[in-house]
């Protein structure tokens, strides 16, 4: 559904995203992991049109969307959330979600009605009239998700929606995301919370220093020695293996 071919982007001398190729198949939950500063958010920004790539192509459902404007990409069916949540602080939860719903619906009442449905789907039904600025972190993350969902996307890019949540909240959100997938929305997510990655993803890509270093099922990639090294530093995999050998 989403095909990324040889995508690169550098800032000054630094290659933030370096020749990345990956694909996200329809109906799956695919995750993107990697240490801090690996270029994950930059990759999302390139896909969603907030940054223009230096080279490479992005295509969605067979159509080339490389370098298109963010709003055009959203209308094509890809919507992103932000790692640092960006609520419309002066508006209520209901109005926030309705902005998303207006992407497909011109009529105000229809958009408000759709926003109400979406709010219920992500468990915010009781908070519709709250000002967005009064929400907790967990509430804001959900709002970000709800607003994106209201645009009726076919592909949802989620940038660390679990960060800062406690175990219960993570558990709830995992269920919400599964339910969204089950309704036919493909999901591509950046996540640091490994528990969520393991439970949710059908497939995982690992990014380090801007380049893809591994792809596979969550279990495969998290046991690959070079992935462990990327996270924990050089020689870590060997030490872990030794440790395990010692225990055995």
């Amino acid at each position: 559904m989403l095909e990324v071919r040889g995508l690169s982007r550098s800032f000054g001398g630094l290659k933030a995203v370096d020749d990345v190729t990956l694909s996200v198949p329809r109906g799956q939950i695919v995750s993107l992991i990697g240490p801090n500063g690996a270029g994950k958010t930059t990759l999302f920004a390139l896909i969603s049109g907030f940054l223009k790539p230096d080279s490479g192509r992005v295509s969605f459902e067979g159509r080339d969307i490389t370098g298109h404007k963010p709003h055009a990409i959203c209308r094509a069916g890809i919507v992103r959330t932000f790692q640092v949540v960006q609520p419309f602080a002066g508006l209520s939860v209901h109005e926030n979600i309705a902005v998303g719903a207006h992407t497909r619906l011109r009529d105000r009442d229809e958009a408000l009605e759709r926003a109400r449905e979406v709010a219920h789907r992500v468990g915010m039904g009781a908070m519709l009239d709250r000002p967005a600025s009064a929400l907790t972190i967990a509430g804001r993350k959900r709002l970000e998700l709800a607003r994106a969902l209201a645009t009726d996307p076919r592909l949802l890019l989620l940038d660390e929606v679990m960060a800062g949540l406690n175990a219960t909240e993570i558990g709830e959100l995992v269920e919400v995301i599964r339910a969204i997938r089950d309704e036919g929305v493909t999901i591509f997510l950046i996540e640091h919370v490994m528990q969520a990655v393991m439970r949710l993803s059908d497939y995982t890509h690992v990014l380090n220093h801007g380049a893809m270093i591994a792809s596979g099922t969550p279990r495969e990639v998290t046991s690959a020695p070079h992935v462990i090294e990327a996270y924990l530093g050089h020689g870590a995999a060997a030490r872990l293996a030794e440790l395990e050998a010692g225990h055995a």
């Binding site: 907030f50 709003h71 902005v99 619906l105 994106a148």
Partner: peptide
């Protein structure tokens, strides 16, 4: 205030990046 245009205009005021991510041509 009660049209899509109004809602989108307010969204642009509140946060232009978020508005664009939601399909608004700011």
């Amino acid at each position: 205030e009660r049209t899509r245009f109004g809602a989108q205009l307010i969204a642009v005021r509140e946060n232009e990046d978020a508005a664009q991510a939601l399909g608004i041509d700011a």
